[in-house]
């Protein structure tokens, strides 16, 4: 309706900044990933070395292990969050006093900085000052996240559940509230049991919200860095060295920029592919239909 020039003019600062700090870094990292480049080594020049960085990467046991623990972490965290979140959302559907109050409290972790969440859980679980190891000692369990790999992994998962279950709960509450009552009444008249109602009515109807929530949680869980860096620093050993932590710990101290770029490119590749697959297979078809 008006001149398109004005439209592009209004968009241009946004595109300029995102280009400079979003797109260009990506192109740059792609370019560097095909070079041997260590500015603090004897030869600080960039040397083009074809796919040597990637050749090294696919055989890098530490990187592959880090991918593995990331996937395990994402799986356990997201599944628990969805199950707990759904149970809480269902419980919220009943009338009981203080609903708004409970929901407000439940929302609190969402606005907390990941690094604060990490520091809180560090204060809770460090053997000398933490309350959790102290209480567990009464049951004869010795919790030391600095030594036990499995304990450290579990605590990071629990921390993620504590931090992000509210997001799942709140989205599912929103979805459940907006459901029409008719199908449920009809099903009860027809004599359907609870399990049948869940699988055949509730689940299909909240599917869109459920998928969108899982999608967001999946992306966010894959990029978890701050809280884990604070809580365990990736240790003990490499038990909680998730890919983000791996990049942070590997690239900067070793200043091997070419190889670090290759790691970054592959992590971004995996994220985009997973993201795109979910988007096209689950969300886009729904938008097209209506």
């Amino acid at each position: 309706m008006q001149s398109k020039k004005l439209g592009w003019l209004l968009l241009s600062p946004t595109l300029f900044i995102l280009g400079l700090f979003g797109i260009f870094p990506f192109i740059y990292v792609l370019w560097v990933s095909f070079h041997e480049w260590n500015p603090f080594a004897a030869n600080p020049e960039k040397l083009f070395n074809w796919a040597a960085n990637y050749r090294k990467l696919v055989f890098d046991a530490q990187f592959l292990a880090s991918l593995g623990v990331t996937l395990a972490f994402v799986f356990f965290a997201v599944v628990s969050e969805v199950v707990i979140g759904y149970i809480l959302a269902q419980a919220f559907m009943k009338d009981f006093p203080g609903k708004a109050f409970f929901r407000t409290i439940h929302t609190l972790p969402l606005i907390m900085a990941p690094i604060i969440v990490g520091s809180i859980w560090k204060l809770m679980t460090t053997p000398s000052i933490g309350i959790i190891p102290h209480l567990l000692k009464n049951f004869g369990i010795d919790l030391n996240i600095g030594q036990s790999a499995i304990a450290a992994f579990c605590i990071t998962v629990i921390m993620d559940i504590w931090h992000w279950t509210p997001l799942v709960t709140l989205s599912l509450i929103a979805a459940l509230v907006s459901l029409p009552a008719d199908p449920f009444e009809q099903a009860q008249i027809d004599g359907a049991n609870k399990r049948q109602i869940f699988w055949h009515i509730t689940l299909p109807m909240i599917r869109p919200a459920l998928i969108a929530t899982v999608f967001i949680r999946l992306m966010d869980a894959m990029r978890t860095v701050d809280e884990v860096l604070m809580l365990t620093g990736g240790g003990p050993g490499s038990a909680t060295r998730y890919v983000g932590v791996h990049i942070y710990k590997e690239v900067f101290p070793k200043t091997n920029y070419g190889y670090g770029s290759a790691i970054s490119v592959i992590v971004l590749y995996l994220t985009i592919v997973i993201c795109w697959l979910l988007y096209t297979s689950l969300i886009a078809p729904r938008n097209k239909r209506g």
Binding site: T14, M222, Y248, C275
Partner: peptide, 20 residues
């Protein structure tokens, strides 16, 4: 593609942004 900028893991951009 604007939205994609937010979905990318920040760790990936650490090194290029640092260099740039």
């Amino acid at each position: 593609w604007t939205i994609t900028n937010r979905m990318a893991p920040p760790a990936v951009f650490l090194l290029p942004l640092y260099l740039l």
